[in-house]
């Protein structure tokens, strides 16, 4: 389960902006939305005749495998880094 999402943006003027998002507290705050999204996803699975349990299982596997992902893009003096821990 991801714990921390870090986004770092370096602008051409050299000022870096770093945002650290603690995943679990954000999910807790957004839990009503998360529940709603889960319900919509379950209905979509039923409509398309996809196993809800398998779909949620796969979704959970993907979310659990996210830690360690790192995307670092830089061009000239502009750079964007997204890291999941």
């Amino acid at each position: 389960m991801p714990q921390l999402l870090t986004v770092r943006v370096e602008r051409p003027d050299g000022r870096p902006v770093r945002v650290r998002v603690p995943v679990l507290p954000v999910i807790v705050v957004l839990s009503p939305v998360v529940v709603l999204v889960a319900l919509v996803a379950a209905v979509a699975c039923l409509v398309h005749r996809v196993s809800v349990v398998r779909a949620f299982g796969t979704g959970w596997r993907i979310v659990s495998a996210l830690p360690g992902t790192r995307v670092d893009i830089a061009q000239g003096r502009t750079a964007v880094l997204v890291a999941i821990r």
Binding site: S51, T58, R61, I62, S64, A65, L66, T69, I73, Q75
Partner: peptide, 29 residues
């Protein structure tokens, strides 16, 4: 090198994420 400026893309993806991703294929109707 793009437009005379050096560009770099560095992506690290856990293999577990790829393994989980390929399971999505089984969910396609």
């Amino acid at each position: 090198v793009e437009d005379g400026e050096p560009a770099r893309v560095n992506v690290r993806v856990p293999l577990q994420l790829l393994r989980a991703g390929v399971r999505l294929a089984a969910l396609i109707p």
